[in-house]
Structures are given as C-alpha cells and as structure tokens.
Design a protein around this nucleic acid. Sequence first.
DNA 1: AAAGTGGACAACCGCCGTGCT
DNA 2: GAGCACGGCGGTTGTCCACTT
Length: 406
Amino acid sequence: MGGHSCCYKQKLRKGLWSPDEDEKLIKHISKHGHGCWSSVPKQAGLQRCGKSCRLRWINYLRPDLKRGTFSQQEEDLIIELHAVLGNRWSKIAVHLPGRTDNEIKNLWNSCIKKKLRQRGIDPITHEPLAEVDGTDDKAPINSEKNNSGSSGLQIPANAKLTMHVGKSVDESTASKSSSTPTKEFLLDQLLATHESPSTCRSSKPTSYFSLPLLSFAPDYTSGQTTSAAPPISSKPLLWSNQTARQLDANPGLSCNAMPYILSTLAVDPPICEGDDSVSNWYSGNCSNSRRSSAVNDSGGVMLQSSCSYDSGIFPWSELTPDKDVQVQLGGEAEDLRWSEYLHGAIPASSAMPTQSQPLFGDKIKSGGQFTFHGFSTWHQTQLLQPQLPPSDTSGKDFQSVSAGFE
DNA sequence: AAAGTGGACAACCGCCGTGCT
DNA sequence: GAGCACGGCGGTTGTCCACTT
C-alpha cells in the first residue's frame, strides 16, 4: 500500500516541480480538466505519478489559490476552527477560500503553534498552559499527553471563570444559545464572526458584538468577578478536541452539559488612529500610530504600520513608531503575476510564484522577543492582535483567472 | 565571506475510505 | 465478499533561503 501502481511504473520524477512541468500540467488541465488523475501525467506528457500531479495542482497551481501571507483574520479563524475541528486540515481549509489544507497545516506547525505557546496557550488543547514561561517554546506542560483520557474542559484548578457577556448581546438569546448549541451552530457562529478573509478588508473596527455570543475567560488574577467585562470577548478556546470529535461523531449531540465558549473573533482590533475610545478598551493604550500605503517597485502594495502600546503586556508592544512594520501584500502581488502568467504576459519561468515573504509575524519576531507576563494578562493578550488588512487577492484578476478554468 | 542554523514551504509517504468489478 | 484502483487526508521529510555567528 501507500504507493500507487502508477508510481512504480518506470522512473517517475520526484521532488520539486520545474516551471516546465508546471506549464504542462496547467495547460493540460486548463484544456481538458484533470479527469482521472492517474491518466493526467501520461496525457500531459509528465514523468510524474497522478498523485503527484494532483497534489501539485491542488496545493500550488490551482488558479483560485490565494497564496501570500495569511492575514490576521485568517490566522484567528484557523485557531478557532482548529479548536473545534482539531487537526482536520481539509475541513479547516474549507472555511478559508483560496487556502489549501497543506498550507494551513504548514502555517500551524511552523507559526501558529509557536505563537500560541508564547501566549501561554496549549496549541493542542487550546487551553492555558500552566505555569508558563513565556519565552519557553518547548513542550507545553499541559500537553496532550497530560490530558489524554480526559474529556471536556480543562481549566487549572485555581482558575476562576469569569463570564463575559458582551454589551449588545441579547441575553435571552445568549442564554438560549448556551443551552444546547450544536457543533454546527458553533461553527456557524464562529464563521459568521469572521468575514470572509477575501472580502474582509475594512480597516475600521467592526461591530464589537454583532452576534449573541457568550464567552468566558478564566480570571487568574483576582478573586473578584469582573463585572465590567471588556467589550470584546476574550479568545481563549477551551473547547477540547475530544469534545469536538464527539460532536463530530454525533452531529445532533448538544453540548448542554459542557462548558463552551465561542469568542467573537471577528472583532477587529483597534486601528489605533487616535481612536482612544476604542483602543482604551484594552489595557494597553495605543498611541502614535499611523498607517499608510504605497506601491512598491514590484507593483505590490506596501503597507506601513506602526503602533505602540503603553502597556508592556502585549507582545508587540515593542513595535514602536521607530520600528515600522513593513508589509508587502504578497498575495496581491502574486495573484497579479498569476494572471499575467496565465494570460501569457510573462514567461512561465519568471511567473512562477515565489516564496511568500515573511510578514508581520516575522517582523515582530525580529523586532523583539515575545514575552509572556503571566496569566493575569493571558486573555488580555488575546484581545489585541496586530491589525493588518488582509492580503488583497486582487479580486478581478482572480475571478477572471478562475473563470478561465471553469 | 563562509559556515552554521532555523524557519518556511513544497512534496512525499503511508494509510484509509469509497466505488467498481 | 475479495481485490483492485483511485482519491483524499494527515504526518513527516526534504529543500531552499534568510539570518546569524
């Protein structure tokens, strides 16, 4: 098993695809569709197995791929979806148009996992790590091993739950929805809170409570109930994978008896353009920030953003106005190149998408170490994400290219 | 400038489910 | 029901490249 019969037939190429091979595959599929994958390499004149062709097409050549760096919204959505779906990347990918399961998987393993740990969240269970040293990126104390066999919510013994109900939450609705939400319901709600990444371009904070959602976060700091909850639900996801699996296996199963949260991740973090009323919701005040864009010499939009926060609790608080974050919207640039390529404007060899550029996260990484200041700020840390406009996918080009293949 | 290192990404591997004969 | 072909998925590995020493 494992290998396919086609793979054993004479010397088939392996490894990276050459532009020439890509071109052949694109031409063939755009002309005939893929049909039976096992016959594609033969018909396309490729020395590859069908499986390899399929993978190459799905993960790289498909015209509807967004490519480029993941936006903050997309990352958030992935985290939330992962909390519900676990490592089912293909299921997660369904909710991120233009993204492949492979891409998401890679992002998770190389980036998000680390970020979550640095924020004191176990990437496996989505629960807060116990006694986390924020700089420690090693195996979480509260790892899957430790949790194996357990079910449901895992909260440190000393954790105190604080219910946060948003301002505009209709409490009756909230309590209704808290009674027997199905997994589908939760997913719907979750997805509803996220604008489609490809369309979510508003740089303005959207409504903070557009949905009747309940959320809660452990209050590790005081013994007091937080009566003045921040207007944004905190993000910790305490939905265990096991619970998700149970629900997955039993779609009709209500999670009546289990605590759950669903955070309103759609909330756009403050833009920090002097809107203190917004930024002050966070314990870190935003100051002296700006956002501008320009066109770089490769045609991509350059976005400069800087933001500093008074509070030191935010990992990116070291991003001062002096440390501008420069972001290239790689997705747009590449989509443009794609369309050019497909329209024959530029030769294949030069049109092949390049590796996406490291964006915000890397800048943050290089700008200063993330520090985790303990549980007291654990969920606050969740509240504020560096806000980036999602990569623009150059809709028109994208549509025209897609149309060509449809 | 060269070597070493780590991150990001592409591709492969092995398994599983499904449909057909 | 068994065997086979195929597509799909998740985990893992390989490769490239940027950054650091």
